[in-house]
């Protein structure tokens, strides 16, 4: 490959990978227990996608191709895990992966609705989101920082997620309604 076409190849990969990385990460999140696990799997997945990128047919869907690789990477990664870790068994991982794939269009609507629902979230619950999902900070660290009121914080976090989910489903249902 000439240097120029090699550069184009890199560019194309990075462009596609960056575009689909959040979707891929959401996919992997449905299959593994912790955010550290997600990071591990995503790192491997990124490397494998890059190595295999010359096999990818640009006329096809990058996300479907990538999610097959990611699913396989979850299974490979799982095999290296110690048995006592929190890891789903192969059957359950496959079921979840299939079902996530099948729902992927609806899940994209969910993701969009989340933006709308965050706007509507009351201030106190929004502060919970900000604290719990602060970049680079683990939830248990957040709770530690809060100290004695940690239990209350977890309760509020649960309430926040539940009310966001109610809002998302209503939002998606209303969109589906308007299409019909």
């Amino acid at each position: 490959m000439s240097l120029e076409s090699e550069n184009n190849h890199y560019e194309q990969f990075v462009k596609l990978f960056s575009k689909h990385e959040p979707g891929l990460r959401r996919f992997v999140r449905s299959l593994v227990y912790s955010w550290d696990d997600v990071d591990d799997v995503m790192q491997n997945t990124g490397l494998v996608l890059w190595r295999k990128f010359s096999d990818f047919d640009p006329k096809t869907n990058f996300m479907s191709w990538a999610s097959v690789v990611a699913r396989f990477e979850v299974l490979t990664w799982k095999r290296d895990r110690a048995r006592d870790r929190h890891v789903f068994d192969d059957d359950l991982i496959s079921m979840l992966a299939d079902e996530t794939d099948a729902e992927c269009e609806k899940l994209i609507l969910h993701r969009r609705a989340l933006d709308q629902c965050l706007k509507k979230l009351p201030d106190d619950l929004r502060r919970v989101v900000v604290a719990a999902y602060e970049p680079g900070v683990k939830l248990n660290e957040v709770a530690e920082r809060i100290g004695s009121s940690a239990t209350g914080f977890y309760k509020k976090l649960r309430r926040t997620r539940e009310s966001l989910m109610v809002c998302i489903e209503a939002e998606v249902a209303s969109q589906e309604g308007s299409v019909q």
């Binding site: 959401r26 079902e99 969910h110 989101v129 989910m165």
Partner: peptide, 23 residues
């Protein structure tokens, strides 16, 4: 299957919130 669907939707919400929280 219903509970798996619940897990999937909540995991995706968790990931979506993580995206929003991340720069």
């Amino acid at each position: 299957a219903e509970r798996r669907s619940e897990l999937i939707r909540y995991s995706q919400l968790d990931a979506g919130l993580m995206e929003e929280g991340n720069v």
